[in-house]
Design a protein around this nucleic acid. Structure first.
Lengths: 211, 211, 211, 211
DNA sequence: CCATAAGCGAGACGGTACGTCACGTCTTGTA
DNA sequence: TACAAGACGTGACGTACCGTCTCGCTTATGG
């Protein structure tokens, strides 16, 4: 994202240690205090770093927190083939819910999303750094299901290529949105039973015919 | 809503006018400034009210904004009978998306949800004041569909009554969560076409049989 | 001072009980909190009275406190004849110091004096209600001393009558001022020994010749 | 005055300029508004300084005003040798009265003294910052008078050293207390004639023998 | 004997200042 | 040049009292 530091070679180099400590301290503080109470002075103190060091690297709370949260999503969500479309959906639902239940992610993610409602650049950054990375899971799952014969193959060629991802987008919104709503708003557990029901609803929705 | 009112009938009563003015000013300020820049002093000034009056009624920004937004949802609850389950779902999806696209609601709602990730009392307040009030729409829609014969009647009696609302909860999470995700995260439009596809997926998911 | 209530005879009469309770509560609060922390709401609460009742009778903190303090000085200081000028001075010094060591008087008196530095009407009121009432003690003491032969008789007549009290004023300033300074500023005890020394200094100052 | 200074030498040092500006603004505001209307916000604005800077250095109105007034006394301590004990006393009395007639000092000093009646720390601060600094004038005057032969030399050695200052304390209480009482309470002028009479009384009191 | 008129308790109201907090910038000295 | 420390100007915070204003009730007289 950043041209790798267009940085003069003169003077004392920036401490790489500091970056790590700051991002870690930010996540820690975010979990304990939440976005609203999070203080850059406090982050600096936790990181054993001066406030100036912090402002030298980031322009403010927003940028710092987005970077701190993005790092949590670095680990790719690669789900194993569980043998059936139902099991694959169930798996991704449970995996995602588990992520959302980690306090750092829960708080940090919602905070930046909230901030993004009036900051388009931030929203773009979130989608690129966090959301879009998960979307391939939907495509992977569909591909596997088509190979297994659980879903019909894609329609031939003529279609709009944008239309090809149209369904994937809807499904992604449904899965991600539903899980987020369940966890964040309804504050209800995402257990095996619930994941089963959601998976069933989705598969029927995609493949069913009117009874 | 507050039936006990353990409030003596003594002293000068609180001005109902003030409540209206404050909530209105809050929404207005929320649109113009966004959550982060919203100031209780500013709200008070807009409402022509003293800051103290504001603190006498709410405990802070969070609660005030929740109530201000809740009032917006309250106005817009009822959906007319559109003649079919598909049309009803489509209608509620479009209606909900339209609400979420109002800047005041978009910003304010996400901000309080974000705060609620580490404040259970606030989450409860949000659910009571906003979310749960929408849930009856799901029940209403199901009832209508059953009357029309589009959905089977509820299973007899013996079932767990909690189980009776279990499905409604799932459907609510799916509709609300998907629309929110579409609008807030994917930042894609909720138009007639998309609403059609979501409604179709839901109806098939609820009534379909494996093809 | 007040034309005895130019008050219509209609309506419910004011509670005399309330007046007493308020003045008492004021003194009590003054001792505990001091002028700066004393609040009219608090006084009202202590007196078991509504704030409005209080404002109906006084125009503000100043007037209330002055009245409350003035009441403390109602009791005339009448010192017995102790047999010698030295003993009389000693007696008045000790008596005055004892008054100043009562917390209510110490705090209240200084508070109104401080307020009076920029309120001439208040200063006048203080002098009339409090200070001038003590001044007769000086005249009394001088008269007794002259009778005993400890002091020469007043010069005949011709002198300016204002000049007659001139010395008394100085002596009063010396006694009162010195004791106040000792107690309030130096925060040192006024004991028999100190009172002796002050009395000696005064008597020498008034009667001595250069050694 | 603050010899230990347990203050690290690190960080940006406090602006000495600010101190001067604040104390000056305090005195200015004190004259214009009086103690009661004096606002720390206002002082900060006059000094061109942030409110926080002010609170970083003082704990409140009281301490600030004490220091502001103390600075006024500091400027004006030294009294020239006027050639005789009588003239020296007269000089110090007139000088002190002149100070007390400046509105800033008159109002501010009495206000903090009043507060000090229920705040021992404040009383101590007043004594250290203001009162004790004047006391050396008494010692200086006595020393000069002894050199001139107007007063007998100090008694040899054996006496209690505390006793050495005992007389000085009494004299100081008499001079300061009497002048304060004359100015503040009696509200009468301190002119040459009055100062003469007070000086005479004191000298006789110290040196006279019974006539 | 009840109507008029004030007093009274409670407490909400518009203000003003408070003292605190975090922000993001700056100025030191040291590495 | 980076860095730790910490003072700085700014501006919102939430609180506390001010003095005023409704309320509904009580207590006196006077028509």
């Amino acid at each position: 994202m950043e041209p790798p530091t267009p940085h003069k070679r003169t003077g004392r180099p920036r401490s790489a240690e500091a970056d790590r400590a700051i991002l870690g301290a930010t996540r820690e503080a975010l979990v304990e205090l939440g976005w609203g109470k999070l203080t850059l002075s406090d982050v600096a103190a936790r990181a054993g770093v001066a406030k100036t060091t912090l402002y030298r690297r980031w322009n403010g709370k927003n940028e710092l927190v987005v970077d701190a949260i993005a790092a949590l999503f670095e680990e790719q969500l690669d789900l194993p083939d569980l043998g059936s479309l139902h099991a694959d959906i169930r798996g991704v639902v449970l995996r995602f819910a588990e992520l959302l239940n980690r306090p750092a992610i829960r708080t940090g993610l919602m905070a930046v999303v909230a901030e993004a409602t009036h900051d388009d650049a931030l929203r773009l950054r979130i989608r690129e750094a966090i959301v879009d990375r998960q979307k391939h899971l939907v495509l992977l799952g569909r591909h596997r299901a088509q190979q297994r014969g659980e879903l019909p193959p894609d329609p031939p060629a003529p279609c709009d290529p944008a239309l090809a991802t149209r369904d994937a987008d809807l499904i992604f919104d449904v899965i991600a949105g539903t899980v987020v709503h369940r966890v964040m708003i309804s504050a209800a557990p995402v257990d095996d039973e619930w994941a089963d029901r959601l998976a069933l609803l989705l598969i029927l929705g995609l493949t069913g015919v009117r009874s």
